[in-house]
Design a binder for these strands. Sequence first.
DNA 1: GTGAAAGCGCTAACAC
DNA 2: GTGTTAGCGCTTTCAC
Lengths: 346, 346
Amino acid sequence: MGLGVIGVASIIEVAKLAGVSPSTVSRVINEKSYVKQEIRDKVMALVQETGYVPDNAARSMVLKRNFTVGVVLPETFNMFQRQLFSTIERFLEAFGYRTLFFFVKWEPESESKCLRRLKSEKLDGIIMIHEVTDPEFYEYLAAAPAPVVLCTFDREGYDFPAVHVNEDAASQAATRHLIGLGHRNIGLISGSQFTFGAQRAAGYRSALEAAGIPVDEERIILVPTYSPEEGRAGMHELLARGRNLTAVFAATDELAIGAIRALYEVGLNAPGDISIIGIDDLDISAYLSPGLTTVRQPILEMGRMTAEVISGLIAGEDFQHHPLVFGHRLIVRESSRALASGSNGD
Amino acid sequence: MGLGVIGVASIIEVAKLAGVSPSTVSRVINEKSYVKQEIRDKVMALVQETGYVPDNAARSMVLKRNFTVGVVLPETFNMFQRQLFSTIERFLEAFGYRTLFFFVKWEPESESKCLRRLKSEKLDGIIMIHEVTDPEFYEYLAAAPAPVVLCTFDREGYDFPAVHVNEDAASQAATRHLIGLGHRNIGLISGSQFTFGAQRAAGYRSALEAAGIPVDEERIILVPTYSPEEGRAGMHELLARGRNLTAVFAATDELAIGAIRALYEVGLNAPGDISIIGIDDLDISAYLSPGLTTVRQPILEMGRMTAEVISGLIAGEDFQHHPLVFGHRLIVRESSRALASGSNGD
DNA sequence: GTGAAAGCGCTAACAC
DNA sequence: GTGTTAGCGCTTTCAC
């Protein structure tokens, strides 16, 4: 374990101890060019002994690189995003980058603060897991010196690589699942925040139309965020409208959890009274009682792809148009069930 | 919004444009010493216009500080830890520090890799939200040039400031809640990982003993991790042992969620057949159906305290012995209920 | 009140 | 193969 003096050694001291120049020590450490075996061994031994670790700040100053990728995500990130960013972090680390997280609130001031911090970090790359509102933010990103990858959404008018699921297809699949179970009076709880809220609502509409079921606007509710609380409130509102719902498609699993909760509060249950389906397939969704029927986004693949694309871009590779739009997978559990004949409420 | 040349401006260019020296620009930005109002205004205007932001690497090199606090947490961090670290991050940012996360897996190799990375970062402070196993890790921490604060646990033999809840009191409260409801046949699902698993089990035992209820070892199960899956498996095992349980104390909410799931899988339910209580009070716990009865840890206060202590320490303040051990709060929801008389299974 | 100059720790030319 | 030198962008004495 050696002396283990804690990180006080600089490259100069190691060089002195080894009786060589700092450049040589640098060469040994970075394996840039050949150094005589004997010297190399000696230096390595000293590095061990002194516990020398290169100073990142000095290194990144001269290299003009930080080996750091910034990840912007909502301060209130949910479990889906949590899984996504862990995955991204893991792959990024494997590629030799450290990850710096930027949590941003859903308010202009927070976004501009984030933007300032982003600028000061001289990042090698930026991953957006959060769809900010400020147009200036995207302008900066587009002109930024570092590559940018969007994850879980796309932005019209820019050509950032964007890793995301086909929202329309996913929500059509969710709606079709309910239709296939015999449901006709299907409600929707989606959100007005972020692009995907509208996209998922659109998928719901087109699936209904494709099945020849008229869209009843009273069965659609758009809540401000995607939290369980909003799902709960949305479901209560839907119930209050008395549209004889037998099924509800919640645009996210968290919304679905809240919706089931609302049912519970009024003495109803899923799927007994109303079938529920979500989107995301959070870790927890399989452990709910009833287990949540949902549409899974391939988190692992999306995270890996995001990390791969950004590191390729950083390395200067041309952006090959990877297939960046991912497919979904329907996961049927217990919160949805076939409509008992004659019980469609009409 | 001005020229907005992307972060290419250096302090020298701003100085040239303003017709002053770099030192003056530095003084204006850092408000270190007085600069004539006129010049100050001019410089500030240029800073705006050029979008100049000081380079962190250069800054930290000369200042010999990174303004960075490292937070070590488990790669599989749960929702409780997620809330905790968001809180810490927010306060740290308010104090002017950026947060660098170190996710570590539950394996020796991952811990030593984390240790290496920790060393190379020249952190101003280190917060441990994860109880690593490697003794060497703690040795490093104890000798580290930067202050260290433990959060959610304590480590015998060291005198790191440790922010955590009184585990014994919290789990006694949970157990007593069940006892107060008339339950006598109370199971326990806790874990063998981390110190708190044993602590919570101890609280369970002493509460039982205090109530004159003999501890039945067959009603206690220790699972390897604290995931819903383990809670589910643990509950199935408990059920299989046929000890006429009417209530179960799960050492974490995630464990409790899994336990309820297990009940659901065999056609039982909480609280109808078995009452369930957890510890943590995750965001999601209130939205389950039934809502989970649990013991809340004051996440916000703990996070704030952690950030305050570390920033005080970094600023060179002597460590005043703050009250670092927090109290809990029983949150009664629907997963627990009074034992119907005569239904105690014996 | 402001400028000049030194230097933080490192790497990359460029000599030798 | 290895040493010398310059310089990354910033802050901070020290002059003025």
